[in-house]
């Protein structure tokens, strides 16, 4: 198993560990053979590196890879906008829920 930068990861390589976003949601599972669409996942979610299997490796490990980024209001909002992409931001309930979630996230960090 080796930890590689995104620029060094090639199509056909197989993930050795789960790729998760900062909130712990699994984006890609171990044993996934990487194709073009997986690289779009890396880019879309800001994943800069991942553990991939080396020749002769056994089954993938359960340990997980996460991205670490500084947390501020802007970043919290950016991530929430991503989470809310399938909702109508003009609806008053969604507007309110979004603001409540921003406050909630920031309160959890403090």
């Amino acid at each position: 198993m080796q930890k590689l930068k995104l620029t060094d990861i090639k199509e056909g390589m197989v993930l050795a560990r789960k790729v998760k976003d900062q909130n712990g949601r699994a984006l890609l599972l171990p044993e996934t053979a990487l194709t073009g669409k997986h690289f779009r996942v890396f880019k879309a979610w800001g994943i800069s590196e991942a553990f991939v299997k080396s020749q002769g490796d056994g089954p993938a490990e359960e340990a997980e890879e996460t991205v670490s980024e500084p947390e501020g209001k802007q970043l919290v909002e950016k991530k929430l906008i991503e989470n809310f992409i399938h909702t109508d931001p003009r609806h008053p309930a969604i507007k309110e829920l979004f603001q409540v979630c921003v406050k909630n996230k920031l309160a959890q960090k403090n």
Binding site: D21, G24, L80, D88
Partner: peptide, 25 residues
């Protein structure tokens, strides 16, 4: 379900907040 997805309390597979049906609201 929508509120809990937004709060990210646990996860049952979906990574996004599902759309709100305005009629339900």
């Amino acid at each position: 379900d929508l509120i809990v997805h937004a709060l990210e309390l646990g996860n049952s597979g979906d990574s996004f907040v599902p759309p709100l049906d305005p009629k339900a609201w």
